[in-house]
Amino acid sequence: MKIREISEKLCADIVCGEDQLDCEVFTACSSDMMSDVLAFVKDQAVLLTGLVNPQVIRTAEMMDMRCIVFVRKKVPTEEMKCLAEEAGIVLMKTQMRMFEACGILYEAGLKGHVEDGVCDA
């Protein structure tokens, strides 16, 4: 799925990274605990979270993620936007809650993990 489609399906506003909306992603994860993301995530390209602080961006950067979706009307700060731009990560925000947003993306074909041999380049 293209990152653009994620923003469309979640009626999300793009905060930064507009030039990367055609990037293809296959997997996603959701958490408000960054330690869990660091512990259990492997090759997920999209992070959905309700947490707003610079560590969210750094965590995604450490995991080589491509896109962060802020749910529940959370708004990333200017500092976070700068960090994301530098890291080449797309930020978007949606009014939807976590469960709803995850369900929509799952139904649309985003998976929770990478199948053997398939991954997002």
Binding site: D32, M33, M34, S35, D36, L38, A39, L51, N53, Q55, V56, T59
Partner: peptide
């Protein structure tokens, strides 16, 4: 600290 997304006790094991 937990409300900032850390303090899950996974750091050292990670």
């Amino acid at each position: 600290i937990r409300s900032l997304g850390f303090g899950a006790g996974m750091g050292l094991p990670n």
